[in-house]
Design a binder for these strands. Structure first.
Length: 727
DNA sequence: CGAAAGGCTCTTTTT
DNA sequence: GAGCCTTTCG
């Protein structure tokens, strides 16, 4: 197979330029992914470069997986040795292997946003600051910003000028100390510690530098300073660095990504070859034209000339509805129409929005119509309470010093270890200069007699604490001989979590989640021992993003935020909430740079579409419970009239929908009796297949059934679900 | 100590 | 409108 055969001239150029730095500016739909995969394949197959010497950085794990798949088709078998993944995943590998030199214990756990939040709250308390006065999220963001610039707490304090900087500096200092005591790294640490490791250990860096002859970075416009530095370090020897990006799609500046990295790259590597990919293979002329008009209004950009050989296509549809409920109804009914005409399938359709909160009303509409959909994110699976609880137990086994996890589960299920006791324990551990777990553990030994500081607990509390310590010791001990899944089961069993869950409400659903987590452990790590798989499993569950789990082959409508949609494509795209205040978001109003980013976000959304774009807005929308009236998004003004079709959808849609099988207002008769179905009944659903009824509750003159289908739990309205009993 | 209830506050986007 | 925190009572 000729690797260059199916590429256009510019793409070929980008693939063949293997010596020296390369900057590829790739417009949406210009075959960027194709270029990267083919370039890697070309290096391996044509140039004979060992995959071991190639590193490819992607923005999401999903992108990495897809690339691996595609590569397997081009150069089967050789892909194993490739260093392929997100910056974060790759840094984890470096730190596990070589982190000791930077003072990183290789058994570290990774703290996600949630863990950060709880740690920052503790830090604020420990700094004797009023937690009500400082938003933890703002402080996290400031700390993250500091780490993106690789400033340590003292360095940060030195550069700070405002009182807020001072506060952040103090919290940062404590926060970092607590992280270290817990042997934990947050997302930013993964990057920063790696760069510091290389900076302070030239011999280690030299090893990696020699190894990586070729480095590729995707979505370069969304890299931050640390990531740039890491690439600079690793590429320092061979200088074969290939970065691919599109300044018009830079939408992560709030995460301290900096488009200027592209400029810096050009300046730092003046010999860099620049390749511009302008031919779009994805969208119709109409869509591309619409998108170009939207993005052209940005001041801070270089003009680009996107073009396509694709056909003209349909006009962009702009629609106004009265409320957000009506907006959702429009989307559902329009999807129904498109699918009914046979032109598109459900899986072809996507609905994109600025904020996660917007998904709820949409979901309600989809549920009401019994139309299958998948929500990317929502309450993210790994952020569910029960899932995090079990993960916390596993983390503690891996690393007992992890204080955030300890605090999370020490009293879940309730063991009579309340706040008072926990505070005493924390204080006591601090005075001993050991982690809380060590303090606990020392109580189980009689060594305390010769200790200066006696445990400050009465005998009852002591017994309860010792019992917990014994439990963890048992789990840690058993973890050495069991398989990962067996350990998982043991944790759920011995911690009393299963029993505890059964006393909670909607425990079935939550139990399902635990089983799903178990399935991940089972699937990926089968019967491996925890020694070889626990760390990998814990990493996976912390570093996954929501798009990672998106399966586009499934035939359901996709609900997704504009940010998450980057890098995806759909035949049909609905962008909802096209209102000033939402898109652009009002938080960006007073900052021209942020406003330009909002515009890019809109551009990203439109350019996801292959065939059809709908820009939908609601006249009235409730935000935070309050009903507000809003103006159409200013971005709509930049689309010339001749590209738009409007028309009164309402009249048309009503005449179409109401008498048909779907009804907006009343469920059609006959309404099946709620009594017909009970928990445990086996049922069949035309779309979802076989399932088991979890619960069935009457609502108004209908009933809401929760059904566990293979792999997914769905809430359906009985009158629409059209269920068949199968037993 | 813990469960329940009421009151408070925000809501952008996420590896 | 929901989640988070505090208060109150058993």
């Amino acid at each position: 197979m000729d690797i260059l055969a199916e590429l256009n001239a510019a793409q070929k150029e980008a693939v063949e330029a293997i010596n020296g730095p390369v900057l590829i500016l790739a417009g949406p739909g210009s075959g960027k992914t194709r270029v990267i995969t083919h370039r890697v394949a070309y290096l391996i197959k044509v140039c004979g470069v060992s995959p071991h010497r190639i590193m490819a950085v992607t923005f999401t794990n999903k992108a990495a997986r897809e690339m691996e798949e595609r590569l397997n088709n081009l150069v089967s078998g050789l892909v194993r040795d490739l260093t392929l993944g997100t910056f974060h995943a790759i840094c984890v590998r470096f730190l596990r292997n070589s982190g000791r030199a930077a003072g990183v214990d290789p058994r570290f756990v990774i703290y996600d946003r949630d863990d950060q939040l709880s740690l920052v709250k503790h830090s604020i308390q420990e700094a004797d600051l009023d937690p009500k006065q400082y938003a933890s999220s703002a402080i996290i963001s400031a700390i993250s910003s500091a780490k993106s610039r690789m400033l340590s707490p003292p360095e940060y304090l030195k550069t700070g000028r405002s009182y807020f900087d001072e506060v952040v500096g103090r919290v940062y200092e404590i926060y970092q100390r607590l992280l270290e005591e817990s042997n934990a790294l947050d997302f930013d640490d993964l990057l920063m510690k790696t760069v510091l490791l290389f900076r302070n250990n030239p011999e280690i860096l030299a090893r990696y530098q020699s190894r990586y002859v070729h480095i590729l970075v995707d979505e370069f416009q969304d890299t931050n300073l640390v990531q740039y530095e890491l690439i600079r370090q690793l590429g320092g020897k061979h200088r074969n660095i290939c970065v691919v990006g599109d300044p018009d799609q830079s939408i992560y500046s709030w995460r301290f990504a900096d488009v200027r990295n592209i400029l810096t790259f050009e300046n730092e590597y003046p010999d860099a070859k620049m390749v511009v990919l302008e031919e779009n293979y994805r969208s119709t002329k109409m869509i591309l034209d619409t998108a170009s008009h939207i993005i052209s209004a940005n001041q801070q950009r270089k003009p680009v000339n996107l073009w396509t050989q694709n056909h003209e296509g349909a006009s962009t549809v702009v629609v106004e509805t009265y409320t957000e409920q009506e907006e959702a109804q429009f989307v559902v009914s329009e999807v129904e129409r498109l699918v009914g005409q046979g032109e598109f399938s459900l899986g072809d359709c996507s609905v994109m929005y600025r904020t996660n909160a917007q998904s709820r009303v949409l979901e309600e509409a989809f549920v009401r119509y019994g139309m299958p959909y998948k929500l990317v994110a929502g309450t993210r699976f790994y952020e569910r309470r029960e899932v995090k609880d079990i993960i916390a137990y596993l983390r503690l086994i891996q690393n007992p010093h992890d204080s955030v996890s300890l605090i999370r589960v020490i009293n879940v299920p309730q063991r009579g270890i309340g706040q008072q006791t926990q505070a005493k324990l924390a204080g006591w551990a601090k005075s001993l200069g050991v982690s809380q777990y060590e303090a606990l553990w020392s109580m189980t030994r009689d060594a305390t007699e010769d200790s200066e500081i006696q445990p400050p607990f009465n005998s009852h509390i002591s017994r309860v604490l010792t019992a917990f310590s014994d439990l963890m010791e048992e789990l840690i001990l058993r973890s050495k001989e069991l398989k990962l899944v067996e350990l998982f089961d043991l944790v759920v069993e011995r911690s009393g979590y299963k029993q505890y869950l059964q006393s909670e409400n909607n425990w079935q659903e939550r139990w399902e989640n635990i089983l799903e987590l178990r399935a991940v452990a089972q699937k990926e790590y089968g019967d491996k021992s925890p020694a070889e798989s626990l760390a990998a499993f814990l990493e996976e569950v912390t570093l996954v993003s929501d798009v990672d789990d998106l399966d586009e082959s499934e035939s359901t409508v996709t609900l997704i935020t504009l940010h998450q949609a980057k890098g995806l494509e759909f035949p049909v795209v609905f962008i909802v909430g096209m209102e000033d205040g939402l898109l652009p978001h009002f938080r960006s109003f007073d900052d021209p740079e942020q406003m330009e980013e909002e515009r890019r976000l809109c551009y990203v959304g439109v350019t996801r579409a292959k065939q059809k774009v709908y820009l939908v807005r609601a006249f009235r929308r409730s935000l935070m419970g309050r009903s507000t009236v809003s103006e159409p998004s200013r971005f709509l003004n930049d689309i010339p009239k001749h590209l738009i079709s409007t028309g009164d959808w309402r009249e048309e849609a009503e005449s179409r929908i109401v008498p048909s099988i779907y009804s907006w207002n009343k469920p059609p008769a006959p309404t099946p009796s709620a009594m017909e179905f009970q928990a445990g009944d086996h049922v069949y659903h035309a779309q979802f297949g076989k399932g088991v009824v979890v619960s069935c509750q009457p609502v108004k003159d209908d009933a809401e059934v929760v059904i566990a289908f293979n792999g997914a739990v769905k809430k359906l309205l009985l009158s629409f679900a059209n269920l068949e009993k199968t037993e």
